[in-house]
Design a protein around this nucleic acid. Structure first.
Length: 216
DNA sequence: CACCAGGGTGGTT
DNA sequence: AACCACCATGGT
């Protein structure tokens, strides 16, 4: 798959429109949401955020000193609530210790990424999502949906490594607003399209051929 | 009932 | 490096 051989952003935006993920929300809330939504439907992560907000726990300062069991009971709806409560508190402590989000925002992207990756529960994808959505850095969020999409569009043998995918995407778009929208669009598309293509025989999705995927 | 959801971690081959 | 089980709730 060569750079510029497909216009991924255009195709997705035309098909699904604006997804308005995290529109002007609180920065810490975005970071907490990024942890809570892992392997979970957004609806359930959102209700966990609401519960935290209702109990006045949705800030670094309050979360850092809160009773862990109270956090757990607030976020049960998001699943994995014991590990996620621990990780949320770790994130909160990190931010407080760093002197706040504004202080962190002064750091260059590579350094900030390393700091985030050092946290429990923050891997490559979550670090990228936080950099993009909470810190407005021009970062490509690479998830399973994007890997699958790229592989289907490329029709190649072995899947390209993540850094190649990132380079390919950046060749088309490199600005924060569209990188932000792209990740949301990729997720929406990934949920719409049958995961078992081209093997799936009873796929209800009709826009398959348009995306260059093999017909079921 | 099975399967999936805006992953990450620790252990085993 | 490539797998694996595990984490756990809520919706379809």
């Amino acid at each position: 798959l060569k750079p510029g051989s497909a216009r991924l952003y255009e195709m997705l935006y035309d098909a699904y429109g604006s997804q308005h993920w995290w529109p002007a929300a609180d920065r810490f809330e975005i970071m907490a949401g990024a942890l809570l939504v892992q392997r979970t439907a957004w609806r359930n992560a959102e209700s966990a955020l609401t519960a935290l907000r209702d109990r006045e726990l949705l800030s670094p300062e309050q979360l850092a000193v809160a009773d862990t069991r109270q956090i757990e009971s607030s976020i049960r709806s998001a699943g994995f609530f014991r590990s996620k409560a621990r990780r949320l508190q770790g994130l909160a402590g990190f931010i407080v210790g760093a002197g706040g989000i504004e202080r962190l925002d002064a750091k260059p992207t590579p350094e900030l990424r390393q700091l985030l990756l050092a946290l429990d529960g923050v891997g490559e994808e979550t670090a990228s999502a936080i950099l993009l959505y909470a810190f407005d850095r021009p970062v490509v969020v690479i998830d399973a949906y994007l890997r699958r999409l790229i592989q289907r569009l490329s029709a190649a043998g072995k899947p390209p490594p993540d850094d190649a995918i990132a380079a390919w995407v950046v060749a088309e778009i490199d600005d924060v607003p569209r990188l932000n929208e792209l990740h949301a669009l990729v997720v929406e598309h990934g949920k719409q399209v049958c995961a078992k293509l081209p093997r799936c025989r009873h796929c209800a999705v009709r826009d398959v051929c348009r995306w260059g995927y093999a017909t079921p």
